[in-house]
């Protein structure tokens, strides 16, 4: 802040800048004193009750806000709807009026999508990149907007009365494990779909690789015991690797899920804790951090999906047994 004063910028005059800095410092001190650390250090100073932030009690399962036709609607589902509406409005309104010579918003959207498209093209190649682009871009946009919208005021502060008591109306969608799990399942489904479509039955032979094993068995019946046994051994290893591949395919779902869920939930809890311990200004850098984390997690989720998709359709791992 001293640096700001020296510059005398901020787009305002020098006295105003000093006033703003004093205000920030006051907020900083009051925030520190209002939090539990400050009040323990200086018990003599009593601040009004409304300044202190309530102790957070994060809950892992999302709370149900209301029932729609008997279908429980949790606060994270509402947040996901908000994300969908915001994203569609943002993209729809801008692209509807898109011109050949782009405006600023159009440039931003085209830059973002163009960047993602180039990413897909670089990883998966021209033809496959075009096919994978929608799924990868949607995952990126959904995760990133979930994370960024979750930082807005209103998330975690607006509460509603429900049958189960006071609950938050909105909860950052990524912090409900159902969202990462849903994304991971969709990623899994698309990976298997594109793998099967690109390579047909040979894609499955990556997982159920018994060809060499039974080939060896056949050799033994034809009397070539030594050759048959060695081929059976090789086939056994192949089959075992196939099973591991199959398992890893499913384990991916879990790693996808818990990576996103863990990062986002940790970030949310970090923000809550900082807000509780040192209210107001101190939390600001953590918000910046969370903006960055949201971007990185979105990129990781989209990028890993893209890589798995690419691996599923490439012929590099064609088995030598055939």
């Amino acid at each position: 802040m001293a640096k700001r004063a020296k510059k005398g910028c901020l787009g305002c005059s020098f006295p105003l800048a000093i006033g703003l800095i004093v205000l920030f410092l006051a907020m900083f001190v009051i925030g520190f004193l209002a939090g539990p650390i400050g009040s323990k250090m200086f018990p003599a100073i009593q601040l009004p009750e409304w300044l202190s932030v309530a102790k957070p009690h994060p809950e892992l399962p999302a709370e149900v806000v209301f029932h729609l036709f008997g279908f429980p609607v949790s606060n994270s589902i509402i947040a996901a709807w908000v994300t969908v509406i915001v994203v569609i409005l943002f993209f729809g309104l801008v692209t509807r009026r898109s011109k050949l010579i782009p405006g600023r918003l159009q440039s931003i959207i085209e830059g973002l999508l163009g960047w993602l498209y180039d990413f897909c093209k670089n990883v998966a190649g021209e033809a496959d990149g075009r096919k994978f682009f929608p799924i990868v871009a949607t995952i990126f946009i959904f995760v990133a907007f979930n994370a960024w919208l979750g930082l807005l005021p209103g998330f975690g502060s607006i509460t509603v009365h429900t049958a189960e008591g006071e609950t938050h109306l909105l909860r950052p969608a990524n912090t409900d494990i159902n969202v990462p799990l849903a994304l991971a399942l969709i990623s899994f489904v698309f990976v298997e779909y594109f793998g099967l479509r690109a390579r047909g039955m040979r894609y499955l032979s990556k997982f159920f690789n018994f060809g060499a094993f039974f080939g060896g068995l056949g050799l033994i019946f034809r009397g070539k015991v030594m050759g048959g046994l060695s081929k059976m051994f090789l086939g056994f290893i192949n089959a075992f690797i196939g099973i591991i591949e199959l398992l890893s395919e499913f384990i991916r779902i879990l790693s996808f899920t818990f990576r996103l869920f863990g990062n986002m939930t940790a970030g949310e809890i970090l923000l809550l804790a900082v807000m509780f311990l040192l209210p107001f200004l101190i939390a600001l850098p953590f918000y910046v951090l969370e903006l960055f984390v949201g971007f990185v997690q979105a990129l990781i989720f989209g990028g890993l999906t893209l890589i798995f998709l690419t691996l599923a359709v490439t012929h590099k791992h064609e088995e030598g047994a055939h």
């Binding site: 999302a62 949790s74 994270s76 589902i77 996901a80 959904f142 969608a173 159902n178 799990l181 399942l185």
Partner: peptide, 9 residues
């Protein structure tokens, strides 16, 4: 919730 999120996505 899982189905809702899948549909949502």
């Amino acid at each position: 919730a899982l189905i809702a999120q899948v549909v949502n996505f």
